[in-house]
Design a binder for these strands. Structure first.
Lengths: 343, 343
DNA sequence: TTGTAAGCGTTATCAG
DNA sequence: CTGATAACGCTTACAA
């Protein structure tokens, strides 16, 4: 039994020679056109492939027809559980359709975002899923103009044609406020990261203010702060809110999972008791049941979002004809009530 | 101002024509050989590239020299925070060296693992970082035999040449046990997922048993269970442990972050008070300070692990000569003491 | 049913 | 310094 050196990768030509057929036939065999080959030839090709351990070179494959079979995904922060869950579902959806996912983490850095976009373009990705900062860079526009389908997660961008998939932000805020009101809270602090370019953050903030304006029985305020571990600014904002005289029961509404985490840390440090002071966060996290009496959350349908994103890409990939106008898909949040909103 | 159609991607040939030079010169310009071109030509090429918005096609690039500039990474569970943190650091390290990362999530499924490996091979990745199940598949061996550098995270594989980077598992268990002893716990339950093929799990379990055997003042037991949300088996095991008569103070040692999460859920459901019953988990999680009095953990140096993995790949990529034998790099854990081990 | 030949966009090897 | 020209591994008309 001779050990095969298998020094480098074998090519389609080698397979063809080994099987005593032409490259074309092997290519056909691989490209799902086996029905056009005689059984005998199929068998010989299969054997040769087996023998040589042949694997088609996707690079070469992509070169001719332009089918890289690659989808790119830009993630603003890969350590954010929401992003990861969506990423997970995007990857599965891609795989299910024979695509692979090239994942790029931007760490919320616009420079990296532009670089990554250029990179994805250079690998000729057939579509891009973007969950990142916001400013529509030249790179993004170039991609769009070249006809590469783009889908935006959670935040929309003016100025560039792309489908948008995400949460029904206004609906989520409504759901949160309804819950807090029902539980008897009457004074609400909305904590968010600075909205900046992120349309979803803007939308949530805006809706919160609308609700405040609409409900006379309610008072409230907002705090937009950069969230970092053990932020003094956050601690002070929270301290100010919880220590101020207020006859109305108080609650804090967190704009996303990261805010919830940092607020929970800060409240913990301040010795605030959850429930008496309400706490509700957008984004479900796997530890929310464990902190104090449990933290009430609004879960996003991450699975559906990821699938819809890929679905959206695929639709635009299929017909070379005229494209439908940009479309947005919004999903409703799901409330998970826990002790932090139980007075 | 005419709007450029920019229908498709422009090629090096188009740039060459636009600049009135040859393909070769453009290629040289791009390939870091500008010093061999006259300033005049450089300027014209730069202008043409700018004008056409040209981006080299990595696919075509990879075809000729075989340099795909791609590293593959197999992740067993992308929703595991430890994996994500390492992934993050691997990606940064790759980028810093001009490589991109093709990430594949296997969801702990050996089939997917093999498929993904074949996929990575087909994209001619120049190296692979693996953080996944274990059985050395034919695909993995093929990759190794073709000379693709492979580095294993956290678990080693007999039968295939690969560097291994991970935690000093025995040292971590020692650190944990020393801490528990120092805090006065004398009866320890070690909870782990079934070790199966995972060498690191085996190593930790084995060391726990050794420590038990070495310390006469200590009693203990182990529970190896599949961890799933709200597992009955886990709840029963924990219930048995905490409700049994025992004069010696009890503590639970969790083999990894997922175990810690599930154990924390189960203890919560059982109404066990943390601290009185000790709890210590391997892997630091960002909510550990928030659960009850805070959960004591052993943090893995995830950053260092990711960097070392890529470093390892790069070293084997460089010299085409004879390769050094497989090497293993182990890092020490760091103890973060919190209320859950304070009686 | 099978094969021949012409690219796909780059880089590398030669000559000028 | 600069430029033809031949690969690289594969797909795809176009023939036979």
């Amino acid at each position: 039994m001779s050990s095969l050196p298998a020094a480098s990768h074998s090519t389609i030509l080698e397979v063809a020679r080994d099987a005593g057929v032409s490259k074309t036939s092997v290519s056909r065999y691989l490209g799902g056109e086996r029905h056009r080959l005689s059984p005998a030839m199929q068998a010989r090709i299969a054997a040769a492939i087996q023998r040589l351990g042949y694997r088609p070179n996707q690079m070469a494959r992509g070169l001719k027809g332009g089918r890289s079979k690659l989808i790119g995904m830009l993630v603003a922060d890969i350590r954010n559980p929401f992003s990861v869950t969506v990423l997970h579902s995007v990857e599965q959806a891609c795989r299910a359709r024979g695509f692979s996912l090239l994942v790029c983490n931007t760490d919320n850095d616009p420079d990296q975002e532009r670089n990554h976009l250029a990179l994805l373009a250079s690998y000729r990705v057939e579509g891009v899923v973007i969950n990142a900062a916001g400013r529509p860079s030249a790179e993004l526009k170039a991609l769009a103009e070249q006809g590469t389908p783009i889908v935006l997660l959670d935040r929309s961008l003016s100025d560039v044609d792309a489908d948008v998939v995400g949460l029904d932000n206004a609906g989520a805020i409504d759901m949160a406020m309804d819950h807090l009101l029902e539980r008897g809270y009457r004074n609400v602090l909305y904590v968010s990261e600075p909205p900046e370019g992120a349309s979803s953050r803007q939308r949530r903030l805006e809706r919160f203010r609308q609700r405040l304006a609409q409900a006379p029985e309610l008072t409230g305020e907002t705090a937009c702060l950069a969230m970092q571990r053990d932020s003094d600014a956050l601690r002070q904002a929270l301290h100010g809110f919880v220590s101020r005289e207020s006859p109305a029961p108080r609650a804090i509404l967190c704009a996303n999972g990261n805010v919830t985490l940092q607020v929970a840390h800060a409240l913990n440090a301040l010795g605030v008791s959850l429930g008496e002071t309400g706490l509700l966060g957008i984004d479900e996290l796997d530890w929310c049941a464990l902190a104090g009496p449990g933290i009430t959350t609004l879960a996003q349908p991450t699975e559906a979002i990821g699938q819809a994103a890929v679905e959206s890409l695929m639709q635009r990939l299929a017909p070379p004809g005229r494209q439908a106008p940009p479309r947005r898909t919004e999903y409703a949040a799901r409330l998970i009530a826990r002790g932090s909103t139980h007075r």
